[in-house]
Amino acid sequence: MRLRIRYTKQGRVRFISARDLSSVWERALRRAEIPIAYSQGFTPHPKVSFPDALPVGYASTGEYAELTLATDIDPGTGLARLSAALPTGMDITTYLVVPDGARRFAKYLQATLWDIAWEPDVDTTPDLVDDLRHRADALLASDAVEVVRHRPKGDRILDVRPPLVDVAVDPGDPSEPRAIFRAVLRNDGPTIRPTDLKVALDGLADHPLPDPRLYTRVAQGAVVDDGVVEALTQQVEPLTPGRHAEAA
């Protein structure tokens, strides 16, 4: 039996690195007594895989895992147990029993909806929303926006524009203003992170943006007009409210 799972990584657990994630899951699986299958060979490993890594410190409501079980379980009760065994902030939100002949999980995760959120502030948020809207227009109007990503092995120049499908700015509502920049990015091709997008936005006006409070991977799935179709539920995760872009 194979299960595909969507889960969250929010709060304290967003500081767990991709490297440490496997042991956190393996221990939770053992605590929840999920009969996970093991690989053959000299050093057997539990068959838990994560289709893509989330940078340390990012939050997510769109994390995914695939489990291969040695024996079938009732997925509803079993995964509820697993969700309870996972650390606070990691919650299983949905699952799919993988049908025979299904394509690789990654094939279903074609694009990602990201949130970049700034600290709400009654005085500055409205101006920041306007500023973000202007930068969003400029971003979509450009054919190429290059950013430099600093790495220990040397800087790398990336064009953020090709994988960028659409962006929007969410101002919240008048009683609770906020500044959230949303973007749908294709997962194929060179990986562009929301931090690269932030650097790109910095360069589209005469002053850099303030540091965002939180980056969140909202959901992953197929691209549609106004967002992504989430991979497991087939429900649309919209870019709106505050839909901005004309182009797509």
Binding site: G11, R12, F15, D20, R31, V56, G57, P87, R213
Partner: peptide, 18 residues
Amino acid sequence: ERLLPDVSQPAQYVGGEH
């Protein structure tokens, strides 16, 4: 929490373990 994205091995400072 705001400082942790910029330090090494931030999970050591968060607690929340089983």
